[in-house]
Design a protein around this nucleic acid. Structure first.
Lengths: 213, 213
DNA sequence: GTCTATAAATAGATAGAC
DNA sequence: GTCTATCTATTTATAGAC
């Protein structure tokens, strides 16, 4: 990835103001939610004048949708690739779980922002953004259907299977965030779980859930 | 439950203003989150003057904590009772799942409010409220430990087991809310799942997850 | 593209009459 | 206990100079 930095003290046009705003917005929205974040907060974090945000984005909602849409598009591409890969359904499922965790590790704002939007009932999302969300679900559903057709999976309603895997994934990310608040690490539900263990547990649970008997 | 209603047109002291505020706050906070709700919104829904809210509660945060605390205390009592009941661990686990769903059915604000607070990293909760949250987790952990001691469950980290069961539960509630928004019922991830099916699925998945091999 | 200044609306919270 | 009116701070958003 190319790194573009403005020369120190430069007064000319900053090449990546938009990117700085975008990244600051992702972090802020993830940390405090749509209503909890002010446009000033984003400007401050991005080290950008507030008016610049309105120069690059129509308004706060459009910026938010851009962040969530980009996030969903990225994970959607990953899932679609896995679903289309040349692997057994069981391997695809394991890969789905592993990639989801790795994806979240590389983009810490992702799970919390997604969980927040889900918890809120997705009131900020338009149909276009929801369609990106759908792509993730459909990719997962394809893995399931292939497995059922091959007889390696028992038939389970894709919605139930999806929530059974993604729900714990997101909830664990939220748990880690709660634990990060000061004075909480002693509480038993906030002990650290290595992501290797998380992945292994979810993979085993998912395989058992789908196992024909 | 006794029903107390002020006589129509009464100008005297309303007996249950506090309750009206409390219930309105639960509904509003659940629907739009701490930052998304204005004290005016709560006053309007409760059909109470805004100043009355500050007469009964110190401020917005104290009101919010009262709502969440009451919610956690109620579910905590239920879980503790199940853990102490005279049942096999497997039956206790099934009962935990069923009661959690039934509890949410009877109190529609519960799952969303809880998921919201979790997603936010519980920034609004003090240690006292978190302790109530802990009680729910500990009750669940006791069921697990009893099962492991009796050999009916394999040993699984209680945090992983807890998120694996409660995560899907909460995520499904959020899903139902997303589906409720207009123009969304056609999307495949928003199809309705009967709660009977949800319970059965989670019970089966949980038992398989914990099954020794 | 970038900045300052400010408009316009809304938020949380309180004073004080009844 | 209940109400009206209001204070103060903050918020989204824009106008307009450079």
């Amino acid at each position: 990835m190319a790194i573009r930095t403005a020369s120190p003290g430069s007064k000319g046009p900053r090449p990546d103001t938009r990117t700085a705003v975008f990244q600051a917005a992702a972090a802020e929205f993830s940390a405090r939610g749509f209503d909890g974040v002010g446009v000033d907060d984003i400007a401050e974090r991005a080290k950008v004048n507030k008016a610049m945000i309105y120069y690059h984005f129509a308004d706060k909602l459009a910026l938010y949708r851009a962040v969530v849409g980009d996030m969903l598009a990225t994970i959607g591409t990953t899932v679609t690739e896995i679903a289309a890969a040349d692997l057994t359904p069981a391997d695809k499922l394991n890969r789905f779980i592993e990639q989801f965790v790795r994806h979240a590790d590389a983009r810490p704002w992702f799970p919390t922002l997604m969980l927040r939007e889900i918890a809120a009932g997705a009131p900020h999302l338009d149909l276009e953004t929801l369609t990106l969300m759908k792509a993730v679900f459909l990719g997962f559903g394809k893995i399931l259907a292939d497995g059922a057709a091959a007889g390696t999976f028992r038939p389970v309603h894709p919605v139930l299977a999806y929530t059974s895997i993604v729900g714990p994934l997101l909830m664990n990310a939220a748990r880690e965030r709660m634990a990060a608040e000061p004075g909480r690490s002693q509480l038993p539900m906030f002990v650290a779980i290595p992501h290797q263990d998380l992945i292994a547990h979810l993979q085993l649970t998912a395989q058992r859930m789908l196992e024909p008997r």
